[in-house]
């Protein structure tokens, strides 16, 4: 369970002070899929950064599994992130010059997973995104959709409990984007992991269990409803891969 209690984030000081988040509170149950929706500059990315411990909130409480990450030391937050969380970004951030295998290996190396245990994890993560045959290929030789799939493999390789996705389909065409969405939701359901998607795409947001609408650093509305979207495309993933 993720509890966000009265979180504020202020950038700058005194006259130049800018309030990016002004007292945000909500709760996310384990295994839920959540969309944080808002226009650019609304504070939705800041919210994601604060929740993941990448950025420090100015005040408030962020409890993940009961632990308030704002009172943890930076070292602990880093360790927490490497073991429990993962990220997917709009511009993928795969390392073009590294092989797919080594791109996926990075989180395991950071989490200090022993060498022997890595291979199996990496290969099953690559298999989950249908990229096992590209294991030795350099990431720069991949297409945009393949790169984002590689980023997903990298994100899920260490079995995170929380998966953050920042505009995961923003740089992709709609067909490719759908595959990525499918992969994210399937991980969310299969591993009972919490999926937090930051987006301004309402269609993607509707596919999530919870929608948190952010406006000017405040919560506008929170909608909780069982979506219908995951049933929208019943074709197996392998069949859809052809379209990539």
């Amino acid at each position: 369970m993720i509890e966000v209690k009265n979180v504020t984030k202020v950038y700058g000081k005194k006259a130049q002070a800018f309030t990016a988040l002004g007292g945000v509170s909500f709760t996310i149950p384990d295994g839920a899929s959540v969309a944080i929706v808002g226009k650019s500059g609304s504070g939705k990315s800041t919210l994601m950064h604060v929740m993941s411990g990448l950025d420090r909130a100015t005040s408030g409480e962020i409890r993940i599994g009961g632990e308030n990450i704002l009172t943890l030391k930076q070292k602990k937050v880093d360790a927490f992130r490497s073991e429990q969380m993962s990220f997917i970004f709009q511009s993928f951030f795969v390392q073009g010059n590294e092989s797919c295998y080594n791109n996926v290996a990075l989180p395991l190396e950071i989490a200090q997973v022993p060498r022997r245990a890595r291979r199996e994890k990496i290969e099953s993560a690559l298999a989950a995104v249908q990229l096992l045959d590209k294991k030795r290929a350099k990431a720069k030789d991949l297409s945009g959709g393949q790169r984002q799939r590689l980023a997903i493999a990298r994100a899920i390789v260490n079995d995170p409990k929380i998966l953050f996705a920042d505009e995961p389909t923003g740089n992709l065409d709609s067909t490719t984007g759908e595959v990525i969405e499918q992969l994210l939701f399937s991980y969310n359901k299969r591993r009972k992991a919490t999926l937090i998607v930051v987006t301004h795409d309402h269609d993607l947001a509707q596919k999530c269990d919870i929608q948190i609408y952010i406006k000017d650093g405040h919560i506008d509305t929170i909608e909780r409803h069982k979506e219908k979207a995951t049933t929208a495309d019943k074709r197996p993933l392998s069949a859809r891969r052809i379209m990539l």
Binding site: S52, L54, D78, A79, F87, S91, F93, Q95, L106, P107
Partner: peptide, 16 residues
């Protein structure tokens, strides 16, 4: 820069 950012996001400490 982005590689460094990614590594930090994935929990690599600044020291590393």
């Amino acid at each position: 820069t982005s590689q460094i950012g990614l590594m930090k996001a994935l929990g690599m400490p600044g020291k590393g």
